[in-house]
Amino acid sequence: MKRPGPLITLLVGLLLGLFMLSLNATTGTKTVSSTPKKESPPVTASPAPTKTSASPSPSPSPSRVPVPDASYAGRTDDDSSAVAVTVRDRKAIAYFCDGHSMESWLKGDVKDDGSMRLTGRNGDELNGTLQQGKRIHGSVDVGGEHYAFTADEAKKPSGLYRATTTVRGARLDGGWIVLPGGKQVGIVTRDSRASAAPAIDPETGAVTVDGQQLTARPATP
């Protein structure tokens, strides 16, 4: 038997080469770069900003109003009594008087907003507000009774006067309110016994009580 010739060997080799070439084309072998690829760091989502509650606004402080040194005088709304207030350096003294037998001296401070709470004996109390430095509007509680009042700024000789002395061994305490227009309301107390006070000279404060010459002076805190 004859051996296949060189032509057959060449043909077989050619077919084998074609087979291998088509095999590479169908599998799609990819050349890999020798340089390692740098991976990107994972992206993390930023947390949503939290809503902070607004800080509570501080309570507004009371507005400061001018508190001039001045005197105020007027009558209660029922016209039964008179009220006078004198203010010095934001301190106040007040006098309530019906001109017969009921009276009360009160004192206290004037706050930044012009309000005042003045107190006296036996729980007597005056509450008022200074309005634009021209008048005081409020109420006074004396002897278990409640009175609303308005006292306007008083120019001399109007205002509040007081005299304290001893006459024939008796302690005497007199209070006078000189209203705008000149009308006077006052009480003299002799050892706790009250009675209507004689009129004073508003220019000098001179007054005669029980035959004794006295001088009533402007009352100040």
Rank of each mutant, 00 (worst) to 15 (best):
S55N: 11
P56I: 07
P56G: 05
S57I: 09
S57G: 05
S57W: 02
P58M: 08
P58E: 06
P58D: 05
P58Y: 05
P60A: 13
P60H: 00
S61T: 13
S61H: 03
S61L: 06
S63H: 06
S63G: 04
S63T: 14
S63A: 14
R64C: 02
R64S: 14
P66K: 02
P66H: 00
P66I: 00
P68D: 11
P68T: 11
P68H: 06
P68C: 09
D69V: 05
A70F: 01
S71D: 09
Y72K: 05
Y72P: 05
Y72A: 02
A73K: 07
G74H: 08
G74L: 08
R75V: 14
T76W: 07
D77W: 05
D78N: 14
D79V: 01
D79F: 04
D79K: 12
D79C: 00
S80Y: 08
S80W: 03
S81M: 03
S81Q: 06
A82I: 10
A82M: 11
V83F: 08
V83P: 10
A84N: 14
A84T: 14
A84E: 13
A84Y: 12
V85F: 11
V85E: 10
V85N: 10
T86N: 15
T86K: 13
T86W: 04
V87H: 11
R88G: 11
D89P: 00
D89G: 03
K91M: 13
K91Y: 07
A92E: 06
A92N: 05
A92V: 12
A94P: 13
A94Y: 10
A94I: 04
C97A: 15
C97M: 11
C97K: 04
D98I: 03
G99D: 13
G99A: 14
H100N: 13
S101L: 09
M102N: 06
M102Y: 01
M102F: 03
E103C: 02
E103I: 04
E103S: 12
E103R: 12
S104W: 00
W105Q: 08
W105Y: 11
W105G: 07
W105H: 04
L106K: 03
L106T: 05
K107G: 14
K107N: 13
G108E: 07
G108W: 03
D109W: 02
D109Y: 06
D109C: 05
V110K: 03
V110P: 08
V110F: 09
V110L: 13
K111P: 00
D112L: 12
D112R: 12
G114S: 12
G114R: 11
S115R: 04
S115N: 06
R117V: 07
R117E: 06
L118H: 03
L118E: 04
G120S: 11
R121F: 02
R121N: 11
R121Y: 00
N122G: 01
G123D: 00
G123I: 02
G123A: 07
G123W: 00
D124F: 03
D124L: 01
D124K: 01
E125N: 10
E125T: 15
E125M: 15
L126W: 08
L126P: 06
L126V: 13
N127W: 08
N127T: 15
N127E: 10
N127S: 14
T129V: 15
T129K: 15
Q131E: 13
Q131I: 12
Q131H: 01
Q132I: 02
G133K: 07
G133V: 01
G133S: 04
G133L: 03
